[in-house]
Design a protein around this nucleic acid. Structure first.
Lengths: 339, 339
DNA sequence: TAAAGGCATGACAGCCTTGTCAAGGCGAGC
DNA sequence: GCTCGCCTTGACAAGGCTGTCATGCCTTTA
């Protein structure tokens, strides 16, 4: 039962017109310092906060940023929200979350929500960020958007990514540095762009350090625990088994650990295991998993920043703006020197 | 660049006044069926969607529901969002997420956001739902709210809960049914209400089945992996160790599994392990964990429902409305017949 | 048959802010 | 000293919708 203070009372108290109050609020130029101060004092005295609905009805901004997702990983989704909100709050923006159902007609879900609720921008997470129908609707409605870790068509829009290739390279180099030369690799889902990039980094590190990439030490996985489990069974059930396995994500790495556990191979004494993503599970297993941390919150904050600063459209022939963020190698207990 | 259709065009096309269109849109009574149909056709033909800002500026509803959280568990947070949005979409409502920082001055974070952005209701998750300062601000601002699984002061507001006592009872009964009589128990964080309720269920089941609760088989934990690990070490490092351990949450149960793994006790052949919560980790370990699933999405949907139907205030002397939802026993591979 | 009441509908104001445009004040340039 | 143009400010409309109240018509009741 408060929040009844309007711009009119502020204007009255500070002895100016409502328009001038509006100017001060929106940091517009051409207001005398004296006046500005007087208005600010009135705002503070009345504890006035502009009404978002009226603002967005009258003006062009809605003070709302959308986050669209259909991500199987709650940890990822939450981190995105946390990162985005951190930046949004600085500008008084709020976050609207819109879970999508990729198995259905996504465009049909997006179109009405954009129609009803004006959003100043939208952050798209994988896999929604690669759904062409969604991008089409967004563009048709004229809503700016930023994609997080898109796989395809990078030049189509503004986006934020992490350097998967370098991360995989450095993880491989870490293992090599521990004395490993036979390093198994489990690829990720072939339809996820990150899978190829991570494999590329692995190959580059092996090659540059003079180690052959042995075909029989590379297995196809699908990013799931089960696929990691099965790939590990194939990798470890052979006399010349690798002394280390680098899985393209944590879930598969946990599958590897489960197999090692079953075969009574001690980790990391007999087998080193490395993952990718730093999911919560990585800290729950024993020993804790060495992995790569994506700066998800920072990436989401960067995406929000692109939106808030309006830097989402390409200038002339230049590619659309994008940001490439640094990863972090998280060395825990599942990797160690070769026996 | 669309979304330019207004209520006026709909009115023109269907040959009625904008007020009547508004009536149809809001399902108000006193509109002839014939007219209603004509308007609905016009709405469909023009692909019209009312503008939320205008609506909330003119009327009393904002079509926004807030979700406040400061929850360490991303899986929980995501499920709440999914459940709430499912119900909200039916009524054209959107979800605003507001992560809070409980370590700071929460009221100071909540007050401005409520002031700026009108919300028709707020869903509070643990531990925010037990933060008195937040409840105070909400009430002062006159914003209806529903608490999810609150610990304290249940009669203060509408809330949605699960029957922890019965769930713990049934899990214990499940173990007893497998032939276990020496069942160890690891309590949860003593400041979380759920801890007491779960312990209560365990004690009730043991007693009713004629088994003594042996004090040396009950350990204090803190809901963390580490505390479960340490409690398990104490429980299992004794000649008369229990044949089954029921931990008050999954993280601690995973700690138990790690100790069992270390001591080379086969699960479930030598030791049965049960958890509570059905976190993602429960499916990732091997063998997969028997646990209790909270119907989080359903609970969040119920909370949204209370908000949308306006059933948040107590009637007269009656306690405020609340809903008690059913849990689900998820029997997987970590529990088995006693050796 | 007239009065009363209910139903269906419309005119209009109002919600709170921003955008547009005009006006007044004042210093600079000629 | 006068015009020009910039800075500062304000009046007013607009934005799309709902709330209130009035209107006319039809049905019920005595």
């Amino acid at each position: 039962m408060s929040s009844k203070v309007t711009i009119h009372e502020v204007a009255r108290l500070s002895g100016v017109s409502i328009k001038t109050v509006s100017r001060v609020l929106n940091r517009e130029p051409n207001v005398k310092n004296d006046t500005r101060t007087r208005v600010q004092e009135a705002v503070a005295a009345l504890n006035y906060r502009p009404n978002i609905s009226a603002r967005s009805l009258a003006g062009s901004k809605a003070y709302l940023i959308g986050v669209f997702f259909d991500n199987p990983s709650p940890a990822y989704v939450t981190d995105v929200q946390l990162g985005a909100i951190a930046r949004c709050r600085e500008e008084g923006y709020h976050l609207i979350v819109e879970p999508l159902d990729s198995t259905g007609d996504v465009a049909a879900q997006v179109e009405p929500m954009l129609h009803t609720l004006r959003m100043d921008g939208v952050i798209l997470t994988p896999p929604v960020c690669d759904n062409v129908a969604v991008l089409d609707v967004l563009e048709a409605e004229g809503v700016p958007y930023v994609r997080l870790s898109p796989d395809q068509d990078l030049d189509r829009s503004a986006h934020v990514r992490m350097d998967d290739v370098r991360a995989a390279y450095e993880m491989t180099a870490h293992l090599i540095g521990l004395g490993h030369t036979d390093i198994g690799f489990i690829k990720g889902h072939p339809e996820h762009g990150a899978s190829h990039l991570r494999y590329e980094g692995y190959v580059a590190a092996m090659t540059e350090h003079g180690h052959a990439v042995r075909e029989e030490h590379v297995e196809q996985g699908w990013f799931s625990f089960r696929s990691g489990f099965e790939a590990a069974e194939r990798l470890l059930d052979r006399p010349d088994r690798p002394t280390a396995i680098f899985a393209s994500n944590d879930d598969m790495a946990l599958g590897v650990m489960a197999v090692a556990n079953r075969l009574r191979l001690e980790v990391p004494q007999t087998l080193s295991v490395a993952g990718f993503d730093d999911t919560p599970g990585a800290k729950v297993v024993w020993p804790q998993l060495t992995t790569v941390r994506q700066p998800i919150q920072a990436m989401a904050a960067a995406a929000a920043d692109l939106l808030l600063t309006g830097a989402t459209r390409a200038e002339g022939d230049a590619p659309p703006p994008s940001r490439l963020l640094d990863f972090e190698l998280v060395v825990r207990e599942s990797t160690g020197p070769v026996a």
